[in-house]
């Protein structure tokens, strides 16, 4: 499909005058290189410039700065330029680091599995089973609405629901299923996972639904006509064709969990810490260099995770297709 469009473009572009060719080239992918003029590049740069500049000033340079600071020396009063690896040695040898990372990996893995399962099935339902376009839009909005409200409020909303005297315990005791309130519901690993799933499942649904909606229905019909079973269609057609969405959703969910500093702190009742909440304690006590070393470690690990998931699919190519 993409190649067809490209060849079509080159045909029509050649027929026009030079000036129009430049104009049409701007509207299409793949033509910039051939018409090759700096003018086209300049337009692109002007368009992407403001965004790139903000990210350079507010993301790239600050990130670079905390890499630099991670090598600095410090005491109770201030931070001193130096080049020492002491901060890293401390971070990498402390058992607290290992513990907090293991706990975060555990949550990331559990939440990833649950949100993927939920997200894929819900996206599949919305795209393939809901036939009315209006109804589909309504369902999508229903899924997305909570995402537009405060994450803090959505997290603490679980407290009156899951607590000892909470709505859920009152309900199941009312039905006579148990006589004792269930204690593990709140301020436990369970409640942390529940809150994460509540917050982040939409990040899975969105990209996967986007991928699924691009699948040509006739491909599925062809597989069906060729005698494939439902499961074969699922595993050989639908899932491979939705892997961009799966990869993007996975990246979003796992990085959100790895970078969380609120949910674990609030929902575990102080029993476990997240990487970032440990780090924010260091920032609060003005220990910038060790905090920066911790930050660099976390960024490297998150980047490796993302790189692994991006290796599976070329997200950029897929997104811009």
């Amino acid at each position: 499909m993409a190649t067809m469009r490209a060849s079509d473009d080159s045909g029509s572009a050649m027929m026009r005058h030079d000036e129009t060719a430049v104009v049409t080239a701007r509207a299409r992918p793949g033509n910039g290189r051939r018409t090759g003029s700096t003018r086209v590049w300049l337009v692109s740069w002007a368009q992407v410039g403001p965004l790139a500049l903000v990210l350079l000033l507010m993301f790239v340079l600050p990130a670079f700065l905390f890499v630099v600071v991670s090598f600095f020396d410090y005491d109770r009063i201030g931070v001193y330029p130096a080049f020492m690896l002491e901060n890293y040695r401390e971070v990498l040898t402390s058992s607290a680091t290992l513990r907090v990372y293991l706990s975060s990996f555990k949550f990331a893995a559990i939440v990833w599995a649950i949100t993927l399962l939920l997200g894929f099935n819900i996206a599949y339902f919305l795209i393939f089973h809901v036939r009315s376009a209006t109804l589909r839009t309504v369902f999508f909005i229903l899924c997305a609405l909570p995402f537009f409200t405060s994450a803090i409020i959505r997290t603490i909303a679980w407290i009156p629901f899951l607590g000892r005297n909470g709505a859920f315990n009152q309900f199941i005791m009312g039905t006579g299923l148990t006589s004792q309130p269930l204690d593990f519901l709140l301020f436990s690993d369970f409640s942390v996972v529940v809150a994460y799933v509540h917050l982040y499942t939409l990040l899975m649904i969105g990209p996967i639904a986007n991928s699924l909606s691009k699948i040509d229905k006739s491909v599925i019909e062809a597989a069906w006509d060729a005698g494939a079973s439902r499961w074969q269609i699922m595993s050989n057609v639908v899932i491979p064709l939705s892997k961009t969405g799966i990869a993007l959703g996975s990246v979003l969910v796992t990085t959100q969990v790895m970078g969380d500093f609120f949910v674990v702190r609030q929902m575990s009742g102080g029993q476990s810490a997240s990487i970032v909440s440990a780090l924010s304690n260091e920032i609060q006590s003005m220990q910038y260099p060790p905090a920066a070393a911790n930050a660099v470690l976390l960024v490297i690990i998150v980047a490796l995770m993302v790189a692994c998931m991006m290796r599976i699919v070329d997200v950029r190519k897929e997104l811009l297709k």
Binding site: M58, F59, L61, P62, A63, L65, F66, V251, L252, T255, M258, G259, D260, F261, I275, V276, L279, S280, I283, A291, A292, A295, L298, V299, V302, A303, V306
Partner: peptide
């Protein structure tokens, strides 16, 4: 997008 939020603020 994937950088832990607090770290962006820290930087």
């Amino acid at each position: 997008l994937v950088m832990p939020s607090l770290l962006v603020g820290f930087g």
